[in-house]
Write a protein that binds this DNA or RNA. Sequence first.
DNA 1: GCGAGGCTCCATCAAAAGGTGGAGACAGAG
DNA 2: CTCTGTCTCCACCTTTTGATGGAGCCTCGC
Lengths: 216, 216
Amino acid sequence: MEQETIRVLVVEDHHVVRQGLVALLNVVDGIEVVSQAADGVEAIAEFRKHLPHITLIDLRLPRLGGVDVIQRVRMETPGARFIVLTTYDGDEDIYRALQAGARAYLLKGMTTDELIATIRAVHAGKQHIPPAIAQKLAERMGTEELTPRENDVLEQIVHGKSNKEIAAELDISEATVKTHINSLLGKLGVTDRTQAATAAIQRGIVPLESLRKPKP
Amino acid sequence: MEQETIRVLVVEDHHVVRQGLVALLNVVDGIEVVSQAADGVEAIAEFRKHLPHITLIDLRLPRLGGVDVIQRVRMETPGARFIVLTTYDGDEDIYRALQAGARAYLLKGMTTDELIATIRAVHAGKQHIPPAIAQKLAERMGTEELTPRENDVLEQIVHGKSNKEIAAELDISEATVKTHINSLLGKLGVTDRTQAATAAIQRGIVPLESLRKPKP
DNA sequence: GCGAGGCTCCATCAAAAGGTGGAGACAGAG
DNA sequence: CTCTGTCTCCACCTTTTGATGGAGCCTCGC
């Protein structure tokens, strides 16, 4: 019996990686790359234009992140199937991507065969989360969610602010800052702000890019 | 007149990226990928076997890092020409790679044309550092070098240790720890340990991987 | 040999951070 | 409506951290 050709959209900002993916996939029987995008905005446009069966997407994208793309596209096309293809960027992204509706999460280190098998599986309606990722997800499940305010404070900590500066920045008293810190230290399972900062970075709660001196 | 074919070795641990690079380069006239390697140890072996004109190498490699590969290979083959091809991993890696003798440093976001042009340029004996990288390099030049001991202390700070714990770990007094910290804070241009930790991570002085709970 | 720089340690002090317990306001969920 | 959780603030206390200014020792290079 005839297999339907799987129509794929590749979203990836690194030229050589994207070109490589397209080249690899286009020689596979039953898979056709119908379009490509190099950032989140393009991705949404290309999705609308081609309505692919599967969208292969990196999470780190210029202009609009992968998670946002998944959310927005699935808002208008709930059946859209996404396979996240990324290097490890911290537990938080994995969680958010799957929450947003991604069906599979692959690390860039996987083999071509794994990639193709996953595309076929997801197209067939299955889900695919590698053990290493499932592991991270399980760990993350055991941890408490930070409140919005605690996240604000944590972000300031990562940016190297003192309690006094944080209080000024968020327009609350230093006492309140301490309260939030005490609470978030417990939730993160750490004992001081430095540990909180590294935990936030490694878990992807606060993106590393934001460290390159913004603050105007 | 006849151009000599440039023989290239591709060293990259991510399958799809490596395959993509090879596919892209092999269709280019005058360039031939003679071998591939997925980690640092393989890289050295393949280099010895094929003695390529150009080695395209990622810095993040299993078993043996890219910087070490460059150092060791150039020890026995001083004329070896390396092009570092990586995502941005912190200023420190750029510096070390160029110190080790890399001739060019490209970000993975570059176009295929840029890549090919750089390969040709390096093969012709030129050097190629993109402006963005040169910028980082210049910044790093202005900063003071940390002493070995200060680096030890900084690493402990990043791992969330208190001064007392650091003293125990390094078998020195807490007073000495404070001395080192005071010194390294000045050199890093920061005012407290939390800022020192994030600076160390972002500059690649302490690798982010080492945070995933080691310590047996 | 002498100086520079690195490593070690000291004492002291002020500032910052962290721990505890309590409390009022407010919103949303049951 | 009441309960729960969040956000806000307070006071009080201890511990930690950072700043300062010495000081002795060792090694390397000149």
